[in-house]
Structure formats: C-alpha cells, structure tokens
Amino acid sequence: MASTAIPRLTAGAPMGGPTRMVHITVNDVPFAIEVQDRTLLVHFLRDTLGMTGTHIGCDTTHCGACTVLLDDRPVKSCTVLAVQADGRKVRTVEGLESGGKLHPVQEGFTAEHGLQCGFCTPGMMMTSVALLAKNPNPTEDEIRHAISGNLCRCTGYMNIVKAIQHAAKASGGAK
C-alpha cells in the first residue's frame, strides 16, 4: 500500500479547491460557513451541517432522494451548488415538525403507510409539502405527476398518493 503520511484529521466535510463564505438559512437557522465552490448543497447539508435526513440515491439527478425546498420550491440538492443557495432559504425534512407538532404530510405518510425503508421519504415529503402549498386539493393524477421526480422502490407509490391525499384533507383541501 502506497501512502503519504496521515495527518491529523478534521471532520469529513469537503476540503480543497477554491472556497467562499455562504450564508444559508436552513430550517430558519442562519448559517455562515466557508465551503468549497464545488460543494453540492446535499453534501453541505449532510456532511457540513450533519443534517442527514436528506439522502442521496443517484448520480444523475434522477431519484429525488435529495429533494429540499429552496426558497419554498422543491429542488434536487445533489444538483445545486451550496454557493447557488447563498443568501437563500433551505427547508429540509428536519424542519417539517414544528413545536413538537408533525406536519400534516408527516402525519399522512404514517397514517397511510406511505413509507417502507424510509430512504425516499424525506425527499418525497418535501415534494409533497410544496405540492400542497401550490395545489391544496390535488387529484391522484396531479399527485402522481408532482412526485414523478422522486423514485420509490418500496411502496409502488399507491400509499404515497394516499398519504398526500390524507395530508390534503387534514389541511383543509380534498373535501
């Protein structure tokens, strides 16, 4: 095994290459942190902030496991640079529960068994939150299209659709 001397190490946050300071408000908490220019938002959240609820499921922007809200819109944080989020608001799964009260979408996913392994779930829920904010009473077809950027391998999507309908009803949509 060829190796260089192993230095004292810090945490696993991305290092090396040009850096800059970013100001990003995550779940209402402002952060000012030095990042590499190339740091992906998902790694900023997971590795730098240690907020591991946002997941990574692919390399090619197809799975949506990394979905977060950027200024209230769902985006794939694996394909957003942390520097692109500078000065903006990010909301992640960790920010859904407030004051000990679950978000209706979280309630819906539990009540309707909208998750199995839970890996797609944070991303799926963030997309759902944004959908319901825009369309409080979506049809099944609208829900299926809205979550079409989020892959789930476990549930066959049936109960995810029901979970979102459940949340819509609880929030006063879907009469």
Binding site: G64, R73, P74, K76, T127, H145, S148, G149
Partner: peptide
C-alpha cells in the same frame, strides 16, 4: 421537460 423538480432550477 425533465421532471417537476428539475424544472424548478
């Protein structure tokens, strides 16, 4: 075009 999330960026 792509999916709803990609279209937000």
């Amino acid at each position: 075009i792509a999916d709803p999330l990609v279209r937000n960026m």
